[in-house]
Nucleic acid binder design. Sequence first.
DNA 1: GTCTATAGAAGGATAGAC
DNA 2: GTCTATCCTTCTATAGAC
Lengths: 210, 210
Amino acid sequence: MSRVKSEPGPVPRPTRDRLITATVEQFRLGGYHGTGIKSILTAAPAPYGSLYHFFPGGKEELAAAAIHTSGQAYRDLVDLSFPPGADPVEATRSFFDGAAEVLAGTDWIDGCPLARVALETAQDSEPLRQAALEAFESWLDVLTVRLDEVGVSAESARVLAVQLFCLIEGAFLLARVARDREALSDAGDGAAELVAAALAARPKKISSSI
Amino acid sequence: MSRVKSEPGPVPRPTRDRLITATVEQFRLGGYHGTGIKSILTAAPAPYGSLYHFFPGGKEELAAAAIHTSGQAYRDLVDLSFPPGADPVEATRSFFDGAAEVLAGTDWIDGCPLARVALETAQDSEPLRQAALEAFESWLDVLTVRLDEVGVSAESARVLAVQLFCLIEGAFLLARVARDREALSDAGDGAAELVAAALAARPKKISSSI
DNA sequence: GTCTATAGAAGGATAGAC
DNA sequence: GTCTATCCTTCTATAGAC
């Protein structure tokens, strides 16, 4: 009986995962410099010893893991928001609308999960700059592939993906500071317009009306 | 002789101004949480007493003044970059190109002077959020007026101004993290495209060709 | 692997002389 | 207005028992 897992129950999340999750959550509210290690350990919860056991590099190494995790989660969101076969103009509009809904519904907190930390650390920590860059590039890759699939040429797809990224990130910034959806609404209009223009310019297979 | 200013020489900048200037400079490198009061006092230079004499509200009040000053400086830059009478498409392209030049020439530091501090403080300090918002709005106002002057309708001018803001801010973020001009180049293309489209749709006075 | 205690530095703010 | 000394908190990191 002693070695048997009677009543399996929920598997407790390992300490390492709890630390990363807690860091993601704390960064969401306080960013890198605004988040203390103690608050992460309290939120995990985990003791000091575990942190430096799993992350010998301390706060910086833990932050890199948190950035990686946040980046993957948001990449998955982008992936789901631009499903293969969907109308890219509609998907773009929906993405900006959904982002506005989430942001407004979280007291203007949940915009880009990485922008703040990236701006805080890009100059001072090469590992963290690389982690953020890898995350951003993964989002751009998803977008580029999806746009390519609907007929936008390879080079144009990448350019368009970068433009959509810039529009959403800038809109997150302004919307958070203004506590207003206007920026996301206007940026969404611009994004949809750019996508539509790229589609209109694509090498026609059946060609559009007019 | 004692009361006469013989050899006027350069007027020493008052302590209050030096504090603000030093804060602007330190925020440029370390942001709000990454900048200590002591480093500001060292850079000014100024003693503790002067800081709390001119800014009884401490770091927060000093930061508000620094945000205001940075905001005015960048508004002036936008103002100069979109001179009345100039082709707005050309001005837009030049602005993004110039921004890329400055950013690359400062080791990817001098992008938006407020984005990082704004993201750091918008949630936690209402005075600082307001200061950043006021600065952003002043930039948008300049752009809106300029676009209106070339015939873009009032509502469209504001929307377009917001779109240009989002594109440049998002591009600053990505370019700083990637240490690459691509984002500013692509965003500049998108911005020029949106401006051109708005001009083509404007209530014609002489009407374009075709 | 987990935990506590503490070191050592840096943070913002204040007191009080001048 | 200017200056220095100092308080108290918070920060990251480490030591060493278990």
